[in-house]
Amino acid sequence: MRTNRREFLYHLSLSCGSILLIPACAGNDSEWRFFSNEEARIIIAFAEQIIPSDNDPGATEANVVNFIDKQLTGPYARHRNEYRLGISGIVSSSEAVYNKYFCDLDRDTQRDFMEQMESGKLPEEFWKEINQRTFFNMLLDHSMQGFYGSPRHGGNKNYASYKMMKLDYPHVIGQNRYVSKCATEKLRDT
């Protein structure tokens, strides 16, 4: 009973919220729920720096942007405005500092840019409506959630992070304590 009412109220609040935000929402050509394709590209590049791909999948392969996009039409609907302002802050700062679009910066320069943002050193004129460090920390936190949280929220594809940390997945109830190592390995490979 609780769940039903909760869900009802939740959807109610979303439908109210979205009325205001329709003009700013993803356009018709977007592959995403909330982001425009360009916004998604920026978030993907950003998240990939937070959790880069190496021998194990990084943020892109684990679908971190899908997690964030999905939450922005769910519990994180309250952060929509911050994302819009923050993304535009990233674009403008990158243009001003490097004379380039953020996604077109090479990886090392992107990282350098993000280090400046983390310590609040990007030009303040582009961060009047949202604090650059606040937005950095939010993106950092949401990327970690998308990579290390449960796949049921749209990220951590195929339990990529669990696999990396050598944790059994999925968690087989009543069995985890007793499966042989061989069986565990087999489970990981499927």
Binding site: Q49, I50, P52, D56, E118, L140, M164, M165, K166
Partner: peptide
């Protein structure tokens, strides 16, 4: 480090 390759490495190698 709070992010990047070093953070991921810590997560992978130090959890256990």
């Amino acid at each position: 480090k709070r992010w990047g390759a070093e953070h991921k490495d810590f997560q992978r190698n130090q959890f256990k």
